[in-house]
Each structure stands twice: as C-alpha cells, then as structure tokens.
C-alpha cells in the first residue's frame, strides 16, 4: 500500500528527473541540509540518557564492594565470581542458552514451513488462518499463565525447560510466520519454477534457490526468537520451580527481591544477562533494518 501511494504520486515530478540525472548529488541534498547542530545536539542529549544507565550498571559491577567512587577503579571481578558461583548464575546461564537456542531453532523451522505455505499456496483455510495469526497478537501470554500451567502439569512438563521452550515458541510463532511469508513473497516464484524445470523437487528447489535469499530475514526472525526467549521472565518463573532449572531473568529477580540487595552482585548478574544479547544485537543490526523494510511493513 505504501509503495503504491509513492508510485501514484511519483509521476508528477517527472519533468524534473532529467535535471536530477545530470546532477546526482542533488538527490542526497534534499534531506541532508539540516544544520549539523540540529543533528548532534539532540543526538548527544539522547545518547546521555541511553548510555548513563549502562555506565551505571558497569560501575556497580566493577568497583569494589562499599566503594562510592564514580569510576570503576580499582577494578574488581569479585562480584562476577560471586554471582556466577555462589548465586548459581553459571547454571542459569546454561539454562538460558539452551532455552534461547531451542526456541530459535523451533520457531524458525516451524515458521518457515508455515510461512512458505502462506506465501506460495492458495488453500481453503488460508484467510482464516491469517486472521487467527493476527488475533494471537492480542492474546496476552501473561494472562494465560494458569491454563498453560495446567496443560504443562498434565503433560508432566512442569519443571522442565521444555515447557518454557514450547511456550516461548508458541508466542513467537505468529509474528515470525507473518514476517517469513512476507520475505518469501519477495522471492520471485519463477526462480523456483526454473529450478523445478532443472529437475529439482519442491524441497530441493526451496533449499537451493529460496533459502539463501531468505538469510537476512531468517537472521532477523531467529535472533528475535532468541532474544525474546532469553529475556522473557514470566513463563520461566511460573513453570520452573527447581532452582537448578531456572533462567537468568528469574535469577535476577531473586537477587532483586531479596531483603538486603547486594547491588554489586545484582549489577554483575545484569551484565551477564546482557552480554549475549548485546553480541547478537551487534551482529544482526544491519540485517535488522533491511529485514524489517523487506517484510515487516508490507507484512
């Protein structure tokens, strides 16, 4: 819809384009004339707001216990050691990685299959299915805690990471599937058909021709699933009662709600929680925006 509007309006400036072709730099100037201070001043102010909280947690994690210095010097890692060993963050970390990766794989595979069907076939329940997918966006996972708990209890999955993995996957699926079907629709069907002519069956054609082109989109969707499962808190809090099964967000909550909060340990735990997410984020950043502009908005 968006692109349509753009092209509908586009013919109007047609007489101007020849001039623009002679001077291609003009194209960039249109939005680039903002005085530099209009960029750097607000950006710097916002960056202060963004970065001071990060600095603050680093400060608490790295300075000595009892220190009130505003620079983390002399530096110490004792908070990290303490939280990793004494407060079981080593175990939580493992559980969180496992949950995140399993959710990533399960979500991507299931959403890829469903997304392909939505993108490439017309079938009777397709419209209803799409509407159902959109409706799930209004279903709050937090409000389904009790029935979900009952189901997992029935399946004997309480206190097993499988319950959390399934719950996270289920709530990630609809949006992932909508996004992926958008990505697949952007790949011309004729490419696949050409591969069939060359003797590939549907699956091989998909694997060889379509899958490589989906990479940016799949990276965006997969990392969403991972980050979401890594960060999410309520399912793990509800479904896992055994301390050796719990995940990092639950561990953080336990640290925070204890009577005398050890701020150094809390900060160190927070850093441990942030590291994988920051790595994923740094890695996917450039795919994120292209991935979104390719599929999300047109959805």
């Amino acid at each position: 819809m968006i692109t349509k509007e753009a092209t509908e309006v586009a013919p109007a400036p047609a007489p101007v384009t020849p001039a623009a072709e002679q001077r291609p730099r003009r194209k960039q100037r249109a939005w680039d004339e903002a005085p530099r201070w209009q960029i750097y001043v607000p950006l710097s102010i916002y960056l202060l707001f963004t970065l001071i909280p990060f600095y603050w947690i680093l400060l608490f994690a790295l300075r000595r216990p009892g220190s009130t210095s505003l620079v983390p010097w002399p530096m110490t890692f004792e908070h990290f050691e303490k939280v990793w060993n004494d407060r079981d963050f080593g175990v939580y970390f493992q559980n969180s990685v496992l949950t995140g990766l399993a959710t990533l794989v399960l979500t991507t595979v299931v959403a890829l299959a469903g997304g392909y069907a939505l993108a490439r076939f017309d079938f009777r329940i397709k419209r209803g299915f799409m509407i159902a997918l959109l409706c799930t966006q209004f279903v709050p996972g937090a409000l389904l805690l009790v029935p979900l708990f009952q189901i997992f209890a029935e399946l004997k999955m309480i206190n097993s990471l499988a319950s959390v993995i399934i719950a996270e996957t289920v709530f990630q699926l609809p949006l992932s599937m909508i996004l992926i079907s958008g990505f697949i629709r952007n790949v011309p069907y004729s490419l696949e058909e050409a591969a069939w002519v060359d003797g590939c069956n549907r699956f091989t054609a998909f694997r060889i021709v379509v899958l490589p082109l989906l990479r940016p989109g799949l990276i965006a969707v997969g990392s969403f699933a991972f980050v979401h499962a890594w960060n999410h808190f309520l399912f793990a809090l509800m479904f896992l009662s055994d301390q050796s099964k719990q995940t990092i967000p639950v561990g953080l909550n336990t640290l925070m709600s204890s009577d005398s909060v050890d701020l150094g340990a809390l900060a160190a735990g927070g850093i441990i929680a942030a590291v994988p997410v920051v790595i994923v984020f740094a890695f996917i950043q450039k795919w994120l925006i292209t991935g979104f502009s390719a599929g999300a908005v047109k959805g």
């Binding site: 963004t50 603050w56 947690i57 960060n231 967000p249 925070m256 929680a273 984020f281």
Partner: peptide, 16 residues
C-alpha cells in the same frame, strides 16, 4: 542498543 534489553534487566539498571 537498549532495544534488546529485557524488562527484568531494565528493572535491575533502574533500581541501581
């Protein structure tokens, strides 16, 4: 960068 930070971690940071 704060986009990927969880609700719980946000709480930790702002509690500090």
């Amino acid at each position: 960068s704060p986009w990927a930070v969880s609700g719980v971690l946000t709480s930790v940071i702002w509690v500090l």
